[in-house]
Amino acid sequence: MTKHKAISLGMAMAGAAALSMTTGLGSALAADWKPAKPVEFVVMAGKGGGADKAVRYMQGVIAEEKLGPTITPVNKAGGSGAVALNYLKGKKGDNHTIMFTLNSFYTTPLRQPKLGVNIENFTPIMRMAEDTFCLWVNTARKDGNNIKSVDDFVKAAKAAGDKWIMAGTGKNSEDNLLTDFLNSAYGLKMKYVPYKGGGKVAKQLAGNNADSTVNNPSEQEGFYKAGNTRPLACFTDKRIPLFPDAPTFKEIGKDFVYYMQRTVVGTPGMSADAQKYYNDLFTKVFNSKKWQAYRKKKALQGDPLAGDDLMKYWKRERDVHKAMLKKMGAIK
């Protein structure tokens, strides 16, 4: 029980922070510095995943609306972002390299101190969104049990014990954290089985090879629209407009809020002018109709966040994740 309390406190803090944060957008004045060559946009994950899709989408927006330079996405998958973080660390002072990060931005340096990565050295550019998480089940289970609410879910999962399979992306990842929370909050023994990507996880559920997932809406969306899978509740502050019938965990008495950052970060020691340039660029991307439409469609939340405010947010989130990883036993 203490475990659950500590986690939920941290989560609530993070959630409240996300809501109350006022934004520090860059000024509208044109920056003096301009890229002299194509800009490398490092993706902290493999091709075809959620982060990769978002980067290629932004690349498209920048190219189509002629907002800025040529953007070249470069995938540095592997090691839960360790490879990408190490790469960016080595590009010290490079004004033509930026990266798109997730929450492994906090967890990977914590879990692998050998990397020698201190995220405070990176240059904050802009948080483009926060992705959300929901609890999903199949609408046509093999055993015929039609699970419609968290109560139904708890009853079924309790009865199944460790035969209940929760599929998720990666070990000691966001999905793993949420599964641990559900297990301790409801006294369940669900078995967590890690897969390589959100798409694969969604498919395990839709094909009845897993009993539940805690996927991002964008990952489960296709099957939701086809009526194959159903969100029971979401780890958000407010109900997600796409799923008006799914309550938040807060509403049903478990104060648990968790988001995943989708943030643009610059190299350590990037010049202030370059930082300002990218700040302006991504402000324009953020405000574009296309990005707003993408956010809406993928149920992304979170205000834009830049500069010192973004750095403060990183530090706070890192502390939250440190506490969670300790509870999980992933770090000492």
Binding site: G78, G79, S80, A82, Q112, G170, K171, N172, S173, P194, Y195, K196
Partner: peptide, 8 residues
């Protein structure tokens, strides 16, 4: 990286 254990 090993997907199942999450360890390098």
């Amino acid at each position: 990286f090993d997907t199942v254990s999450g360890e390098p």
